[in-house]
Each structure stands twice: as structure tokens, then as C-alpha cells.
Design a protein around this nucleic acid. Sequence first.
RNA 1: GGCGAGAUAGCUCAGUUGGCCAGAGCACACGGUUCAUACCCGUGGUGUCGAGGGUUCGAAUCCCCCUCUCGCUACCA
Length: 515
Amino acid sequence: MEKEKFYITTAIAYTSSKPHIGNMYEIILSDAIARFKRLEGYDVLFQTGTDEHGEKIELKAKEAGVSPKEYVDSVASEIRRLWDLMNISYDKFVRTTDEKHEEVVKHIFKKFYDQGDIYKGEYKGLYCTPCESFFTESQLVDGKCPDCGREVKEASEEAYFFKLSNYTDRLLKFYEENPDFVVPVSRKNEMINNFIKPGLQDLCVSRTSFDWGIPVSFDPKHVIYVWIDALSNYITNIGYDVNAQTEEFKKYWPADLHVVGKDIIRFHIIYWPIMLMALGLPLPKKVYGHPWLLFNNDKMSKSKGNIMYPDDLANVFGVDAIRYYCLHEVGMANDGNITYDLIIDRYNSDLANVLGNLVNRTISMANKYFGGVVTNTKASEEVDNELVEMINNVHSNVTKNIDNMEISAALESVFDVLRRSNKYIDETMPWALAKEEDKQDRLKTVLYNLLEAIRVSASLLSCFLPETSEKIFKQLNTLDKSLSFNENNTYENMNAEVLFARIDKDKFMEENCQN
RNA sequence: GGCGAGAUAGCUCAGUUGGCCAGAGCACACGGUUCAUACCCGUGGUGUCGAGGGUUCGAAUCCCCCUCUCGCUACCA
């Protein structure tokens, strides 16, 4: 039987500056989902990439004294380096400056124009002449330019617009027929109430005020303005073009899941579906607008000086610890919070104590009592049932959690098994069994059950903590990555090594946070 | 201002369609244990389930009304 496909994307990262850990959350989250789907046997296509056009980048490049292309090349490669460092298992990495992408976006724009979805009009707004920028009412500070504080005046420039309102009814019908399209649902209601009900305004899709963008093929003084360019990445990079599509595209489109930040939900559940309708393409199955990871309950920003970078954190705590922290801390709909203090708490209590110590004590006992050779002697007792049952249920629990975008809960489901295992050790007291000659079979069964609990947990953890999962399999010396209790394994030549060394918080704070 | 969401132990949160003395993890205290990374296991707190009123045999869970917090409110992405 052919494997079911699963196409998952992240939003493409804007190449204006190096991503911080808050920006990185999205790709870690998506990676966990992608890995889980692969583990379940799906044929996964996982795409991420970079959004490289726009005025802001043009300005940044100018400041840096380099060309926009040089600027985005450098940031894009930095982003890729971080993605790789954090063990992100993306299959495709798209850049909006890729020749193929630019070509197809031009075709898409032209098609919209030819169909009458796009028309030429006037962009009216409040303009700050010295800053050469348009602002909306809501962007102004005290009625003045938010950048320089000077007066703004009504002005207009020629621009192309997409007539969104033609598609309102179809969009609402789609929402109705696909109640699971947007997660969390509350976001959909916000969009309907604030944008759709009052009537969709036409979307400005070109600019003449800057150059760093894809030119409109039939009117080259215009560049294609952000959303047609950026959103199209989901199809251009897997082989869509207006007149011909590749096998890859036919196989993977529509996307099964777009993972995006809650701040760009609007573009993904209004503009993007409308663009796809205009192209005559099927719509994505689901859009998840995830919450943010905040620093000390505040948004990270350069001006606040509270930015934490993923590479710095990984150097101190390790890649998996940071992945774990991010995934555990951010809820399905609630923002998470990150500080050194909180990282260390989680690291010690979950990774070092519950997980690391369990693996360590179990393998140590196996080596001490049986020279590391443990088979299933099936000397079962009542007390084993609950543990074995949990081992056999954890996979479906995690599946349920992930289908609901409850990644934090998925982690908890696995850790429930680990916690239960620690308790099981106290209940069965292997050290006491070891002293009784006629209890050796029972002891072996106890250790076997524990090893299976660890093995199945490690299999599932491969989605969240890939390096640690591998380390555990090495320590267990097994290749069996199946997701339920296996009656017939043999464990031998196991080797206990500390997975996560405890961190002395006071000492750490003294050494690293003296201010 | 408009629309929407929410207020549950010190902290972060679970609590299906109202019904066993309101739960979990973390933190804290005490006790137990020793295989293990001073780890693990157990026990514990005054939680007015934001305030007030109502419906009901019975409400954190339904209704009304306050107070407070948060999200969205269109071209930065």
C-alpha cells in the first residue's frame, strides 16, 4: 500500500535579521510534527524557507553597505545554519529569490490580472515625505509619522489591487464546510468578525516606491508586493506553474498543514485561500496559528535588549534541551515564557531527574544484576499491568495530542510513562528481589518491563529530542523502534551514560547572569 | 469604541454533555528508600474554583450582573 502523503510547511522566515529563539519556535514545533508523521509512516514533505524581498530589507542592505542580494544571502545562510544546528529535518528550503519562484510568481500575477482579479488603481494613504513611507491611521503615533515624528499628509500612488470581495461567499462556505481548517478556532472568528463581515477591502499587491522585489512582468516599474510573492512559496517550490505542474506538486498539494505565527493568521486564512481559489487549486487542509515564546512575558526585541539566540542557548544547554523547553512551554493557544531560570527548572526536573535518571538507574541495575543481559522471563505480577498498559497506550495518546496541536501535552503523555516507570521501580524494589535467589526471573521481568517502557518512550521522543532518542537507543543497544510493548526483545551489552547532567542553578546564575 | 476569549492551589495549567471529599506537573515541608544524576517513592497546605445574585436535590461547570486580564480591529512581516 502506498504511504499517505503529508505536506507540512512553516511560514518563510523574513531575512531582515538573525532569528531569535522566539522566531525559532515555529520551526521546532513543525519539525516535531513532521518527525512524528514520518514515524507514523506518512510520506512527509516538510518545507521551510526564507522571505527575502521588501522595503525593509532594501533599507537594511543599504545601511550595511551591501546589495540586497548580498544581504539576504548572508542572513538566509545564517538561518539555514541555525535550522541545521537545531536538527530541523526539513526536506525543502525555498527562498523567494530563487529564480524558479520568481518566474512562477510573475506568471501567477499575470494570470490574476488577465482574469480580472487584479486591477490597476490608486493606493491612498498617509504619506511621510522624508521617510518615503505610507502609514495607516493606526500606525501613526500622536497623528504623526511613527519613524521620524513629522507630519504626514494624504497622498496616493499607482498600485495594483486584488479584488478579494469577489471570493467572500466562497470563503465563508469553505469555513463552514471545513470547521477544522483553522486552529485555534477563536482565530477564525476574529477574522470573520473583523474583516469578512465588514466587507473585505481590496488588497494592494504592488508597489512602486521601492525596487527590491519581483517586477510585474507587464508593468516593470511595479514590484509585486509581499503576499502574492511570499505565500506562493508553498506551491512554487514544489513544482506549480500556471500552465504545468510537476508530479511532485500533484502528489503533495494541497498542504496538510501550514504552521504559522498567530500574527499572520489573516494572510493564511483569508488572502491565501482566495489566491488559491483564483488559481483554481484546492485549499490547504489546516492552518495552525501558534502562540509565541516570550522572554520574561515580554516580546523579544533588539531595542529591549532581551533577545535569546538559539545557538547561544544550545551551546549552554544542548540542542535537545532547548527543543524540549520550547515544545513543552508553549501551549496550543497560550504563549510560553522563557528565562534562564525556567529553562534550568525544566531541564533538571524533567530531563535530568525523570528521563535521564530513569534510563541510568534501569540500565545500571540490568548490568549489575544480570551483566546487562535481560530477556522477557514473563514472571508477571498484577503490578505490571498498569505499566504495560500505559506503554501500549502512549502512542495513541501522542497521536491524539498532535492531531489537536497539543504538542506540550504530547510530551506530557510520554513523560507520564517515564514517571510511572520510576514509581514502578519503587513498587517492585528490584534491589530487594536481587537478594532473593528464587526471584531472579521476577527481577528480570521487572527490568524487562522497564526497558520496554524506556524503549517505546525513546521511539516517540525521537520526534522531539532526536539526539537524545538516538543516545538512548545506543545505550539500550537495540534497533527496535516499534511503538508498543514487544514481548520478545533481548537486551544485552547495554551501557549507562548520563544523558543530562544536573545543573546547579545558583552556581549557573552566579556565573552567567551577573547583572 | 467594536467583536471575541478568559479569570481554578505559590507558579504553569487540566477539568467532556452540571453529580463520588476539585485535579496534574513544578516549587516548598516532612517521612521512606538506596538501583540511580542529593535521585526516586509517599504524605501535606488556609485553593471562598475573580465578586455578587439566580436556576437545581446538587454547579468550577447553566442564566444575570459587576470587576479585572488578554486577543483581534487591514497592507511591517
